[in-house]
C-alpha cells in the first residue's frame, strides 16, 4: 500500500467516525428535541402522552399561589382561549411574574396539571417569547406588547 493510499484510508476512517457520531447525535437529538404546544393544543389533548414538551402562555393574573414557606408554586397559563394549570418546584427566574409570557418545560401530570421541571422567562420586561406571541395572536386577535 502506498503511503498516500494509507493516509487516505485513515482520513476516511476519521470521517466515517465523525459521520457515525453525527448519526448518533441526530438519534440522541430526537430524544432531546422538545416540541412546543400552547394551552389550546393541550386542552384538545394534542400533546405527546408521557413525553416532555414545552408549554407557553401568559401567566394568568392572580393565579400564582404557594403554601407559605414551600418551594412548590402553582399558576395558570393561558392563551386566552384555554387555560392549563402548572405546578413547579424550584426557584423561578427573576422575570417571572403575573401577566408575563413564559415557557415551561415538563410533562402532563395525571390530574391534568402540567408538571414543569424548568421555567423560562426572558431577561427583558417587554419580551414575549415568539411562540407565545404567535399563540396569543392566533386567538382573539390580542396584540402582544413586543
Amino acid at each position: 500500500m502506498t503511503p498516500r493510499r494509507k493516509r487516505m484510508l485513515v482520513v476516511f476512517g476519521i470521517l466515517s467516525g465523525v459521520a457515525a457520531s453525527v448519526a448518533l447525535a441526530v438519534v440522541a437529538g430526537r430524544q432531546n428535541i422538545s416540541f412546543y404546544y400552547d394551552p389550546t393544543q393541550v386542552a384538545l389533548g394534542k400533546e405527546p402522552p408521557g413525553k416532555g414538551f414545552r408549554l407557553g402562555g401568559m401567566v394568568v393574573k392572580g393565579s400564582v399561589s404557594r403554601k407559605p414557606g414551600d418551594l412548590t408554586v402553582r399558576f395558570v397559563l393561558t392563551d386566552f382561549a384555554h387555560q392549563v394549570p402548572v405546578t413547579y418546584t424550584g426557584v423561578l427566574p427573576d422575570l417571572f411574574r403575573e401577566g408575563q409570557g413564559i415557557i415551561a418545560h415538563g410533562t402532563m401530570g395525571p390530574n391534568g396539571e402540567f408538571v414543569a421541571d424548568e421555567v423560562l422567562a426572558k431577561h427583558d420586561e417587554k419580551y414575549m417569547p415568539p411562540e407565545v406571541a404567535a399563540s396569543l395572536k392566533n386567538k382573539h386577535g390580542v396584540k402582544p406588547t413586543t
Partner: peptide
C-alpha cells in the same frame, strides 16, 4: 416548533 436541548449539543 422545537428546541434542541443542551444534552444534544454536549454529545455533539
Amino acid at each position: 416548533k422545537i428546541s434542541v436541548g443542551p444534552p444534544v449539543f454536549n454529545l455533539m
